[in-house]
Nucleic acid binder design. Structure first.
Lengths: 141, 141
DNA sequence: TATTGTTATACTCTATAACTATA
DNA sequence: TATAGTTATAGAGTATAACAATA
């Protein structure tokens, strides 16, 4: 079946908006927000990097990432090191506490989403799984 | 292939967050936001309804919808009518201007997403299309 | 007393513009 | 001059709590 981009856009956009609303609202630990968790996850996956790189990966502007990183530093979840050769740059990375937090988060707040995913059938989960890469590609194009 | 809910959650959540960031930021017409457009689209699809119903469909709390509706009324895109039998309720619906706006929006801001979708191949678009229903279900569970 | 909607308030998310320090 | 990061500022998005009107 040939899918019309315009019709797909009409259906996809509101579905994404509503689902993210629900996911953002769902927080077991009220002290840490989804935006912060997402940045921590990217640091875990990709290793230490500059704030600018992290902002690019997270699809936000650098000043937005500055704020997220300040709050994460205050929580003790990330640390900074000077860049070895470029004095303008900084390298941020997860602390041990940050790693511990991410693990615990996967057993609480994260569990909520996992539980909902368990209510889907195998076919639906497989469809979602296949689509994650497409969603990422769309955000990067 | 059996997909583990926990792993799927880990991949899906940040992908959704980042994609919605990009989509929200994309506005041809700076005067109308994605939140407003989403509410208008729901009114177009489902017809006139009470603010409470609309809030439930959009997955926001009633006070949030009150604000969205005020801004849309100021723009002239929605109108209110008293409920025929229940004096507490109000019925909100699209105006002609609201309908005209939604049409034009599909040819500007909306076009941006359609264009990105055109950069995908048929298989990827089909996967997305299949997944829209699953995303909706996840938001409603 | 319960429900619908609104007002008041506050915090998160994010951006653009301007500034500082280093290259 | 150009780049990386931060500070200043502002608006959008959303929630909870408290209130008014109607059922």
């Amino acid at each position: 079946m040939r899918i019309e981009p315009a019709e797909l856009a009409t259906r996809l956009r509101p579905a994404l908006v509503r689902l993210v609303r629900v996911i953002r609202q769902q927080r077991a630990d009220l002290s840490v927000t989804l935006t912060q968790i997402s940045a921590l996850g990217t640091l875990e996956t990709n290793g230490p990097m500059s704030p600018g790189e992290l902002a690019a990966l997270e699809r936000v502007q650098p000043p937005s990432m500055t704020k997220v990183l300040s709050s994460l530093e205050e929580l003790g979840f990330v640390g900074r090191q000077p860049h070895p050769t470029d004095g303008r740059q900084v390298i941020v990375g997860l602390t041990d506490a940050g790693r511990v937090f991410l693990d615990s988060e996967r057993q609480s707040r994260h569990a909520w989403l996992s539980q909902r995913l368990q209510m889907l059938d195998d076919r639906e989960r497989a469809a979602l799984y296949d689509t994650v890469a497409v969603l990422d590609k769309l955000a990067r194009l």
